[in-house]
Amino acid sequence: MIESCSGIYRIKNLSDNKFYIGSAKNLKLRWFDHRKLLRKNAHFNFHLQRAWNLHGESSFEFECIEFCEFEKLIEREQNYLDKYYHLNVLYNLNPTACSQAGMLHNQDTKLKISTALKGRVVTDEHRLALSISWHKSDKCKKQNEEARKKASLSKLGKKESIETRVKKSIAHTGKKQKPHTEETKRKISETKRNKKNVNLIKGDIYAEPS
């Protein structure tokens, strides 16, 4: 059973014994996040994603290789990367441990990360995986929702010009409209019926007595 505590972990491919090294404040939650992205074919590590797609989920196992305090995660992760990176058994793209928990790097670590990333070519496949991962993230959804709210508020009280209406009409000309659902049809029918009743009432009110 995977513990909900901090430590160093590896995701091992049982088919060829290659593995991915990482660190996490919450091991159980981190494994959940990895599997979620891998199952959606949207993992940020395209080497690991490709192997997952090729061998299948059942060929991979998640295991904690060392429990350690939160403050020492990066230091201990770097120790394992230094030990295995040159052996060509890792899926890790970067030989330098990077924090994703808001931890600050010292100048020496920053220099190592900068050196490791220089000259690195990001493939179109990797860019696509990063893009898919971002658009499916909660942060992206939150930003989109905030943008929609701002756009909606900015339009309050504004009337479209005749020119804008004509442009919209032309843009929608010839486009196939999606068929209404039964629920939508029912609401439209009720709205029309209510309008008709209101008009009848108004007619009775303003009609001159015979």
Rank of each mutant, 00 (worst) to 15 (best):
K136F: 08
F67C: 08
V166L: 09
K202Y: 06
R193M: 15
E75S: 07
L14K: 11
N17L: 09
L117H: 06
F70G: 00
V198I: 15
G56T: 11
E190H: 12
K176V: 13
K176D: 00
I8V: 15
G7E: 03
L27N: 07
N17W: 07
I188S: 13
L200P: 00
L200Y: 09
V89I: 10
L104K: 08
I65Q: 12
T184L: 08
C5V: 12
N197L: 14
G203Y: 11
G22Y: 03
A129I: 04
N94S: 14
R186P: 01
L90E: 03
T96S: 04
N144W: 10
I113V: 14
L29R: 14
K168S: 09
N53W: 05
V121G: 00
K118M: 12
D16G: 01
E183P: 05
D204W: 09
K168L: 14
G7R: 02
A207N: 09
L81T: 02
L73N: 04
I188Q: 14
T173Q: 02
E61V: 14
Q107R: 04
E77A: 00
H172C: 10
G22A: 03
E182K: 02
E208M: 11
L128I: 09
N144D: 08
C5L: 09
A97R: 03
H135F: 11
R127Y: 13
N194Q: 15
C98E: 11
I201L: 14
R193A: 15
D33W: 04
I205A: 04
R193C: 12
I170H: 02
K142C: 04
S99R: 03
H47G: 03
L156W: 08
R39M: 13
H135K: 14
I74V: 01
G7D: 01
A101Q: 01
K155W: 12
N45I: 10
L104T: 09
N53D: 05
A147S: 06
I132Y: 04
K12S: 06
S99L: 03
D82G: 04
K187G: 07
